[in-house]
């Protein structure tokens, strides 16, 4: 399927990226081109083939114990925050 403006706007909304009208036009064309590349996968018969996942690749099966190993460094956690206040991150109001 081709990528139209409505779909680009929907994807932008899901991806939380603000798009201007010229952006929508540009990305519709470019994403359409990338989707045509992706559609080459339709040529491959994958019946009976399992999806490759992390654990299948190279047999990694490492698990760590679920225990607290560190903590109590609020300053370090907040030191990169754009506008920290009284030991908290600040966000926009999310309820009316």
């Amino acid at each position: 399927m081709s990528i139209d403006s409505a779909l680009v706007r929907r994807i932008g909304n899901l991806a939380k990226i603000e798009l201007s009208a010229p952006d929508v036009e540009m990305f519709a064309e470019q994403l359409g081109e990338i989707v045509s590349l992706m559609n080459q996968l339709d040529q491959v018969d994958t019946s009976g083939v399992d999806a490759l996942n992390f654990e299948m690749s190279n047999g990694h099966k490492n698990r760590t114990e679920d225990v607290v190993r560190d903590g109590s460094y609020m300053e370090r956690v907040l030191e990169n925050a754009p506008e920290p206040k009284e030991g908290f991150f600040t966000v926009k109001k999310v309820i009316e």
């Binding site: 779909l7 996968l41 999806a51």
Partner: peptide, 26 residues
């Protein structure tokens, strides 16, 4: 990010993401 969002979204996950994982296996 938008292509990734698209291939993981409802209705396209099987056709693109799962399909690509199978081809990756091949």
């Amino acid at each position: 990010v938008m292509i990734g969002t698209y291939v993981l979204s409802a209705g396209f996950y099987e056709a693109y993401y799962q399909k690509a994982l199978k081809v990756r296996n091949l």
